[in-house]
Each structure stands twice: as structure tokens, then as C-alpha cells.
Amino acid sequence: MSISYRRPGALIDKVTHYCPGCGHGIAHRLIAEVIDELDIRGRTIGMAPVGCAVVAYDYLDIDMCEAPHGRTPAVATGVKRALPESVVFSYQGDGDLAAIGTAEIIHAANRGENITVIFINNAVYGMTGGQMAPTTPEKVKTTTSPYGRCTETEGYPLKVAELLAGLDRVAYSVRVMMASPGDVRAVREALLKAFRCQMERRGFSIVEILSPCPTYWKLDPVEAFRHCAKEMTKVFPLGVYRDWEETGANQ
């Protein structure tokens, strides 16, 4: 087999607005690769969140819908119920999914909506300028936690992959990260499996991705990448928290 890599066909030839080294760019590219590999461009419908990825539809060459902040899984539900044969994914940040949209994500998961959720956990509100997120680790300073996140008053970071894995209609819940080429390959595998889960009508799938935000982590892109492995995984352990193929098997 010849060695080669080409920009995926499902990725539009447009320079993104993301900061250098941003995990959103990698996630978009991987989604496009998976769509190409599964050959589902003509039946995939994506939900763009409110967050840095609000114009994800500018970059992915598929039908896409905007959702009000946090309602992304509810909009995805409406699309999937209308078109059960389509492949529907909801792309969400941690503010979108784990703060304002907590009710929507839990109930979509609990109903076992046959959709795929791609959850970009960068532990911060990127779009609005680096405020504290429900996933911000303890003691981390942000523009709205200038003294560091205080667990006494602000609680601990929300662990979404674990939380949703506790729901019986969830087929696949996994946490992966972007910290090295190998880790990014694992993200790609997780996305492939999550889409396959949906295409086999197994039910709700979520891929939580620890994703660098160099800008508001105030790290250069390479340090931010390594930070995912060094710091983020202390709070958010990687793992397959639910897998229909080996029910109950947690890593």
C-alpha cells in the first residue's frame, strides 16, 4: 500500500477561524476523514453548537444545522426522528454540553437517541473569551475564576463520559485526548466506532475529547498538546466507559 495523505473530501478548502494548534481543527478534520471512510457524506447531518465551533458548517461539506446554545442534542433528536436513515451528529463544547445543555444531553442519552455526540472538552469557554467552564479543573485560573476554581463554591469538574455511561440506553461512551499522534489516532478510532454504533442502530454514542485550547490555556500549541496528557487526564481519566460490544467493560 502506498503511503499518502490527502485532505479529506468532506473538508471544505477554507482556512478555519480557529487559533493555531486548536483541537477543533483536528476534530473537524477527523470527522471529515471518518465521513469519507464510511462513505456517508450524502446522508450525514451535523449539528453545530454555539461555541468556537459555531460555524463548523463553513468547513464540513455536509448538510448542517445550527442549534441554540446547549440544545444541540435536542435539535439532533428532531432531525434524527424525522430522518431515521440519516447519520446525525451533535458537535458540542463543554459549556454547550455540560453547563447550559445538561438537561438536553442527559435526556437524549437516556432516551438512547441513535445519534453520535462529539464532545470537545477544552475545560474553558473559548468563544466568549476564556471563562470558567463546568469542566475547568480545580485551582485553574480563568477570566471568571481569577483566584482559581474553588471547589467549595464552584464544585468539581463535571465528568461527562462517566456520567453518561451510567445511563442504560447509552451504547458507547468513551474519553480520548489530543496529546500525541497516537492519541489523535485513538480519537479517530473512537469516532469511527461511534458512527458505526449509530449506523448499526445500537443507540446513543458519545466521544469526549480532551482538546487543547492553546489561547486560553496560555500555552504554546505543543505545550497545550502535552498538557492534555500531563494535567487534563489527572482530572479526566481516559477510558471506554461504556461499550455495547463488551457491555460493562470499563477500562
Binding site: 435536542a74 433528536t77 428532531g78 432531525v79 438536553e104
Partner: peptide, 16 residues
């Protein structure tokens, strides 16, 4: 789960 969700589901089906 709520009216917020209901109208968003309507949005999804309308979009479809």
C-alpha cells in the same frame, strides 16, 4: 424534558 428541548426538537424536524 422541557419546553426548551421541545421547541429545539421542532427546530430539528422542521430543518429536516
Amino acid at each position: 424534558e422541557s419546553e426548551l428541548a421541545a421547541i429545539s426538537m421542532v427546530l430539528g424536524s422542521a430543518a429536516a
